[in-house]
Amino acid sequence: MSGFAERVVVVTGGGSGIGAAVAHRFASEGYAVVIVGRTRDKLRKTAAAAPTDGIVLARTADLTVPEEVDALIDSVVTDLGRLDVLVNNAGVPAFGTVETVTPKEWRNAMAINLDAYFHTSHAAIRHLRATRGCIVNVGSTGGLGGDHGMVAYNTAKGAVVNLTRAMALDHAPEVRVNAVHPGFTLNTGITAGATSDLPVVRAFADRIPFGRVAEPEEIAGVVAFLAGPDARYVTGAQIPVDGGLGAANGQPRIEM
């Protein structure tokens, strides 16, 4: 597609899970959506499943390579005329402790879960300034607190928290920057194929006040809110979407 659009959003990691749900949500709201990832088949399936009359375009890029990211963002603005929203969502799970994670595994986790957010933001910020647009970073509750056996992932997602805050300060009021932090969510990379009746999913759900884990569409709704006009005075925010899990102090339920 070539031709100017009224509103344009780039969603990284848009081939599945939360990224796909975010892309479809923005498409339903009239945005021209560009989904980015490394697997063309997944991106094409997401684009083909877009809401009727929605515009979802697939672009492949390695977000850990700055030159590819620069070329990607420039091509979006050249083809569509503008950029209004960047959703940084691409990510990978990483398991292990500081004793067991290899340097290669550590660097890979940082490159995708953190460095890619910097590269896309660096490439997009001048275009977003021109439209008084915004960035929404998809972090994780793993960046707001620790998990067992996920030291690299927790570190990268924790850095996303302060990356968001620093960018919000640096670029206000022209560009708003906020973060959404999902808890356990079905149909994402780490939970692909999982169902609510699996023991591991049930174990998570039992600790969540809502009594269930999240669906990708529930994360997408909060992302859309932060990108929309009702959040025009919100920047630097860290919004957990965790069914109330973060409200607990860790103590067990006591029946009186």
Score class of each variant (00 low, 15 high):
residue 118 F to C: 02
residue 81 G to F: 08
residue 153 Y to K: 04
residue 42 K to M: 00
residue 182 P to S: 14
residue 244 G to F: 08
residue 142 G to P: 03
residue 164 T to C: 01
residue 99 E to P: 02
residue 20 A to Q: 04
residue 108 N to V: 10
residue 235 T to P: 02
residue 10 V to A: 08
residue 177 V to C: 01
residue 239 I to A: 08
residue 77 V to D: 02
residue 7 R to D: 02
residue 31 Y to F: 15
residue 113 N to G: 04
residue 146 G to M: 13
residue 192 A to T: 12
residue 155 T to G: 00
residue 207 R to W: 06
residue 194 A to W: 15
residue 66 P to V: 12
residue 121 S to F: 05
residue 151 V to Y: 01
residue 152 A to P: 05
residue 67 E to T: 14
residue 218 E to M: 10
residue 207 R to M: 03
residue 209 P to R: 13
residue 205 A to Q: 10
residue 23 A to R: 05
residue 183 G to K: 04
residue 234 V to W: 05
residue 210 F to K: 14
residue 203 A to F: 07
residue 84 D to S: 13
residue 170 D to C: 11
residue 94 A to H: 00
residue 156 A to I: 07
residue 73 I to C: 04
residue 44 R to D: 11
residue 147 D to F: 15
residue 250 G to C: 08
residue 238 Q to I: 15
residue 72 L to Y: 04
residue 189 G to D: 08
residue 223 V to K: 03
residue 56 V to H: 04
residue 53 D to V: 10
residue 160 V to M: 06
residue 32 A to T: 14
residue 15 G to H: 01
residue 57 L to Y: 02
residue 203 A to P: 01
residue 124 A to V: 06
residue 55 I to C: 11
residue 57 L to T: 11
residue 108 N to D: 09
residue 205 A to E: 08
residue 240 P to Y: 02
residue 138 V to I: 15
residue 199 P to Y: 04
residue 190 I to N: 09
residue 152 A to K: 04
residue 133 G to L: 07
residue 78 T to D: 15
residue 245 L to W: 14
residue 247 A to S: 14
residue 195 T to E: 08
residue 151 V to E: 09
residue 224 A to L: 15
residue 148 H to M: 15
residue 256 M to D: 09
residue 53 D to G: 13
residue 219 I to T: 01
residue 107 R to W: 02
residue 231 A to S: 12
residue 165 R to S: 00
residue 75 S to F: 02
residue 252 P to K: 11
residue 7 R to Y: 05
residue 171 H to V: 08
residue 196 S to A: 15
residue 15 G to V: 00
residue 256 M to Q: 10
residue 76 V to N: 02
residue 77 V to L: 07
residue 212 R to S: 06
residue 153 Y to Q: 02
residue 89 N to D: 09
residue 110 M to G: 00
residue 115 D to L: 07
residue 174 E to I: 09
residue 20 A to I: 02
residue 123 A to L: 12
residue 44 R to N: 10
residue 157 K to H: 05
residue 93 P to G: 03
residue 72 L to C: 00
residue 67 E to V: 14
residue 189 G to Q: 10
residue 173 P to D: 05
residue 115 D to M: 03
residue 107 R to Y: 00
residue 209 P to C: 13
residue 167 M to C: 11
